[in-house]
């Protein structure tokens, strides 16, 4: 009973939030509604027993992607009124994409009734007795540890690349020098002045 209630709660809020994402006039509100939709999708995933995907949704989509969207929306000065101006001229193309998506959903529903895909040679069987986070972790950190480390190397190269391509030594910037800051004593920085009344401060 409680599952059914939770399902309809998450599902209704998610669809409502998704609709508001599209219809909100203010793009910042759109992103906020999108975050609500992601949270509720996470809830639905927990109901399905896929808690790893639920966490991914919250951590990756809400924590990274949606915040990135928010940054883009707020930092780039995009004129959304202008973007909407071409709505009518793009309508046929938009409808075409909508029809394709609808057809894919119908196709997916049709195939769903056939049953799940049989994976004859799984790398590992789906364990029944442990949570799927544990199962993924066990596989990722044992059998695939080598690739996990190498994927880390890929990220490192991406980081080096970003720095190589964009970093340049600029003159006139004040970098932080912790050592110098720590060596600075009060007597170097503070001066006591016997300030006479009625005269300006000499700096």
């Amino acid at each position: 009973m409680i599952q059914v209630f939770a399902f309809y709660l998450f599902a209704c809020i998610m669809i409502g939030a998704a609709a508001l994402t599209i219809f909100a006039r203010n793009p910042v509100h759109s992103v906020l509604w999108l975050i609500v939709a992601f949270f509720n999708a996470g809830g639905l995933m927990i109901l399905l027993g896929a808690e790893f995907i639920a966490m991914l949704l919250v951590i990756v989509y809400v924590g990274a992607v949606a915040v990135l969207f928010l940054f883009v929306v707020m930092m780039l000065n995009i004129d959304f009124a202008e973007l909407r101006a071409g709505f009518v001229s793009y309508l046929p193309f938009g409808m075409l994409i909508a029809i394709v998506l609808a057809a894919e959903i119908l196709l997916g529903l049709g195939i769903w009734s056939v049953g799940p895909i049989e994976l004859a040679q799984r790398a590992a069987p789906v364990p029944a007795d442990i949570h799927n986070i544990q199962a993924i972790g066990a596989l990722l950190y044992t059998r695939y540890i080598f690739l996990f480390e190498m994927a880390g190397l890929v990220l490192l190269v991406a980081m080096i690349g970003a720095i190589v391509l964009t970093h340049r030594g600029r003159s006139g910037v004040r970098g932080q020098n912790i050592d110098r800051q720590n060596r600075r004593r009060p007597q170097d920085a503070i001066v006591n002045i016997a300030q006479p009344v009625g005269k300006g401060v000499e700096l």
């Binding site: 695939y144 690739l147 190498m150 890929v154 991406a158 690349g161 190589v164």
Partner: peptide, 23 residues
């Protein structure tokens, strides 16, 4: 296939940066 892909991406990412090394 997974090793293939990770290796390919590692090589490609470094190559993209090298191609535009004279920025």
């Amino acid at each position: 296939m997974l090793t293939l892909y990770v290796g390919l991406e590692l090589n490609s990412l470094a190559s993209y940066v090298l191609a535009s090394f004279m920025r």
